[in-house]
């Protein structure tokens, strides 16, 4: 089938402002949008720039806007998005070149929620694992799936409106540790996410949940954090 692929282009070394370029391609309906971008880069315009690595939705490199929605280019198939396809960089992060955005502010927010396991108590005397029941493990399973692709955070109008909002991805990371029965820094993290740059900026718009390529129930996770912030209870 023939597809029309319209791509946002911006090269700061050449262009004063961005523009779009349109390519007509032969494609299969099972082709990934990433395959189309690779084809354009390989045979039509080598200067087209984008990030990619695993090509099957687990590394988080190629989040971008496809027909207005945040998706991973390697997980969006032609049959899902149709034969007229517009590809643009994520919103809310500075465009560095074409589909590549500056990820540093995103990772800076991630780092603010103490994104690492904290437990300073002695290890079990036998040196074995800290015990955790399957139920306790299931409590935070959903938020362990996050691949830090930024599709959620850059779909959030609250994030577009204020750079200092931690954003859904950082809150997902906070959730992953706060509800881990083995972790001891829940109170500290709750304090961080309860500041004005945190939970209060979430207005339950659900864009993040819709955007997540890992199907994490992000709005639900943030809701649970809000409930904990109100009640002080972790379960």
């Amino acid at each position: 089938m023939q597809v029309t692929l319209k791509i946002f282009r911006y090269n700061p070394e050449v262009d004063k402002k961005f523009h779009y370029e349109t390519y007509q391609l032969e494609a299969e309906e099972t082709d990934r949008i990433l395959d189309l971008l690779e084809h354009v880069k390989g045979y039509k315009d080598g200067t087209l720039s984008f990030r990619r690595s695993c090509a099957h939705g687990v590394c988080g490199s190629d989040a971008m806007r496809i027909n207005g929605k945040n998706m991973l280019a390697c997980k969006a198939l032609v049959r899902d998005v149709g034969d007229t396809i517009t590809v643009e960089p994520l919103l809310g992060l500075k465009v560095q070149k074409d589909l590549i955005v500056d990820m540093e502010p995103f990772f800076d927010n991630y780092k603010k929620v103490l994104p690492y396991f904290i437990n300073d108590s002695p290890l079990p005397a036998d040196g074995r694992e800290r015990l955790q029941s399957p139920e306790q493990r299931a409590r935070f399973d959903d938020t362990t799936k996050c691949i830090l692709c930024a599709a959620c955070t850059t779909s959030c109008p609250s994030y577009w409106g204020s750079d200092d909002y931690l954003g859904p991805a950082a809150l997902v990371t906070a959730h992953r540790f706060i509800y881990d029965s083995r972790d001891e820094a829940a109170a500290e993290r709750m304090h961080i996410v309860s500041e004005t740059s945190g939970l209060a900026r979430c207005h339950t718009i659900f864009n993040c949940t819709m955007a997540c390529p890992r199907d994490i129930q992000i709005t639900k996770a943030i809701g649970e954090l809000k409930m904990t912030s109100l009640t002080g209870k972790l379960d």
């Binding site: 690492y116 396991f117 437990n119 290890l123 074995r128 694992e129 800290r130 015990l131 955790q132 029941s133 399957p134 306790q136 493990r137 935070f140 399973d141 362990t144 540790f177 881990d180 083995r182 972790d183």
Partner: peptide, 13 residues
Amino acid sequence: HMGLPFDRTPEGR
């Protein structure tokens, strides 16, 4: 011990 969320046995291992 670094926090990796392994799946668990019924005994929590």
